[in-house]
Design a protein around this nucleic acid. Structure first.
Length: 586
RNA sequence: GCCCCUGUAGCUCAAUGGACAGAGCGCCAGACUUCUAAUCUGUCGGUUGCAGGUUCGAUUCCUGCCAGGGGCGCCA
């Protein structure tokens, strides 16, 4: 947010030091890391180290401090700053807080909901996430993907990219046929109860049990798969009808989670292009057909002259049926052909890292190196149950999403009813849901993508501490002050007196939002935004406890109201990026 | 066997190669006639898995170990 100042200072520093025949290494600017101190800082260790490397006999830290002192003397106190201090090799420049606070508040006020957004880049990025299998239950294990993928989309959007949110549905495969078999065998003619997800999940678990226990069932299922492949109209009709039940259920879940998609791809649609592509690969000598004894493979290491690196990618079963890879290859290309993508991101759990590396390498060998290098696997760790038990719909070790949301909402409802009994039933419900869903989202977004999440009922129900409600509550408090004050009005005046340290800290944290969004987008890590949102809420609570607003009058009251309005805006924007609803009361 | 990820306070997690490694939870002791206490203040808590190396400076980068998790030709 202070690029202009930094650039101006850099020029001055450069001219001061070149006069002394000191070659300046690149200057990196950061915020002064001490709470309550507001300003920017840089250091001269790199500059001193470069001198040492060039044969000058200097002790780096001492020399860095010498240079910092030299610069400080040369700069004096630059315009807009109150102090310029050389400390242990660092050069600390302290803002004139009144002036800068005014500037920041004005910026937040003017930009409003767009505060923190970066300029548009005119680059399209596709993010594929969620990828649920139809005919299977949607459980807590699937949650992280949706929450992460959606948040990354928001972050990229805020960072200036044109984001295409894509979903890739596993609407065909053995799991679907197993389900159809189970339906025909034990539930023919039944229609889904109101609890559709559970109903379909139960049928799936039942069918899987038979499939695994009875070898004859496998034969029957394979036979059924054959009928599907041959386009048996009865089977096709049943498949489409039951698939729709699943899609409706997913739709409901996405709506509940506040998540949306621009483009749906179906696995069933890319199977045929995949089969054709494999033929082409064989013709081109990229794939080797070892049928009927073996499968069709892309011998990656052999083609690349490597050993034990990319290994071998199987692209077609020996019986000629398709695999994931059969479909992923054409789909990857289709995405680029359909949209002119600068980046194609796959939000898929870490267990598929090696597989995706193979897919991207195969794309390269197929003659699409420019696509391959734009593909990126955004890997995240899975959500386990305590005792390192992986959720599996086959084994029935799952916590259903709706159960989690219901329990969490109930718990939140009790608390709202306690805190705010005068609210209407509907309002309480709405708030409870926002708190529950926000907590679930925040608990996953505030951990790094590479960390395993262990699902724990007790912790999922805990709304205290560093969690969404803390941030939502700060937002509510800010709104409450503004409401009682009748809203803020007019332009922001310079306050007559110095700012309170908590005011400075709060404004300081606000200014970091654009940079944090930028970094979160570069690294695909919502964690940074989650942390910032919390820091902001904490800074606001400090301010709230130490700086009365409504009790003051005149300039101080007016100025603090603007701080409150800006803080509310900043909190709301951060929550929006995370996909968490900001309620008006709690 | 090879590859990837993780290892930081009792627990769950932070920390663009920089200043004193920070939060939350839990424990204990406090603060509501106040702008909503879903809040705040204070106390306790560390050989950043181990050993080397690079660097002026390493939780961060490199190497080797140790521990846990995941992956490695017809599952998705």
């Amino acid at each position: 947010m202070f690029e202009a100042e930094q650039k101006r200072l850099e020029e001055q520093i450069l001219s001061i030091l070149t006069q002394q025949d000191i070659f300046v290494s690149e200057l990196k600017w950061t915020q002064i890391p001490f709470t309550g101190e507001w300003g920017i800082t840089t250091s001269f260790f790199a500059t001193a180290a470069a001198e040492a490397r060039n044969g000058k006999s200097v002790v780096v830290p001492r020399r860095a401090q010498e240079i910092a002192e030299m610069v400080a003397n040369g700069l004096g106190t630059p315009e807009g700053f109150t102090k310029c201090e050389p400390v242990r090799g660092y050069l600390n420049l302290y803002f004139s807080t009144v002036e800068y606070a005014h500037r920041v508040l004005t910026e937040v006020q003017v930009k409003g909901d767009a505060f923190g957004k970066l300029s548009r880049k005119s680059q399209r990025v596709m993010v594929e996430y969620s990828q649920p299998n139809t005919h299977k239950p949607f459980h807590v294990g699937h949650l992280r993907n949706v929450i992460l993928g959606s948040a990354v989309c928001n972050i990229l959007d805020w960072a200036g990219y044109d984001v295409i949110r894509a979903n890739y549905l596993g609407d065909i495969g053995l799991h679907v046929i197993k389900w159809l078999w189970g339906y025909l065998k034990f539930h023919q003619g039944e229609t889904p109860a109101h609890d559709m997800v559970r109903w379909m999940g139960d049928i799936y678990a039942e069918a899987t049990r038979h499939f695994e226990e009875d070898p004859d069932v496998e034969k029957e299922v394979r036979q059924l798969f054959g009928r599907w492949h041959n386009g048996d109209p009865d089977i096709e009709a049943l498949w489409l009808k039951t698939r729709q039940w699943s899609l409706d259920a997913f739709d409901q879940i996405y709506r509940m989670m506040g998540v949306e998609f621009d483009r749906y791809y179906f696995e069933s649609e890319v199977e045929k292009p995949g089969l054709e592509l494999v033929d082409q690969l064989i013709q081109d000598g990229i794939a080797r057909d070892e049928r009927p004894q073996d499968s069709v493979i892309v011998p990656l290491d052999e083609l690349l002259g490597l050993e034990n690196d990319y290994r071998v990618l199987v692209v077609l079963r020996s019986d000629g049926t398709s695999l994931y890879s059969t479909k992923d290859l054409p789909l990857a290309i289709q995405k680029f052909n359909e949209y002119d993508l600068a980046k194609s991101i796959y939000v898929i759990d870490v267990r598929q890292s090696f597989y995706l590396r193979q897919i991207f390498k195969t794309l390269e060998l197929m003659g699409y190196p420019e696509y391959a290098e734009k593909c990126h696997h955004l890997a995240y760790e899975i959500v386990n149950l305590p005792g390192n038990v992986t959720m599996s719909s086959r084994e029935g070790t799952v916590v259903l999403l709706e159960d989690l949301v219901r329990e969490a909402t109930q718990r939140a409802f009790q608390i709202v009813a306690e805190k705010n009994p005068e609210l209407s039933e509907a309002a309480k419900k709405e708030i409870a849901f926002a708190v529950a869903m926000g907590s679930i989202k925040y608990s996953m977004l505030s951990k790094d993508n590479t960390k395993v999440v262990t699902f724990d009922w007790e912790r999922a129900m805990d709304f205290n501490g560093q969690a969404a409600p803390y941030i939502q509550y700060a937002y509510v408090r800010a709104g409450s002050i503004l409401r009682k004050a009748g809203g803020t009005v007019g332009t922001i005046e310079h306050p007559a007196s110095d700012l309170h340290p908590t005011e400075v800290q709060l404004i300081d944290v606000m200014t970091r939002i654009p940079d944090v969004i930028q970094r979160a987008a570069e690294e695909y890590r919502p964690l940074h935004v989650a942390t910032l949102a919390y820091d902001l809420a904490r800074a606001f609570n400090d301010f709230y406890n130490q700086c009365p607003v409504l009790k003051e009058d005149g300039e101080i009251r007016a100025f603090r109201l603007h701080i409150v309005a800006a803080a509310r805006q900043a909190l709301g924007n951060c929550l929006a990026v995370l996909g968490i609803v900001a309620p008006d009361a709690m």
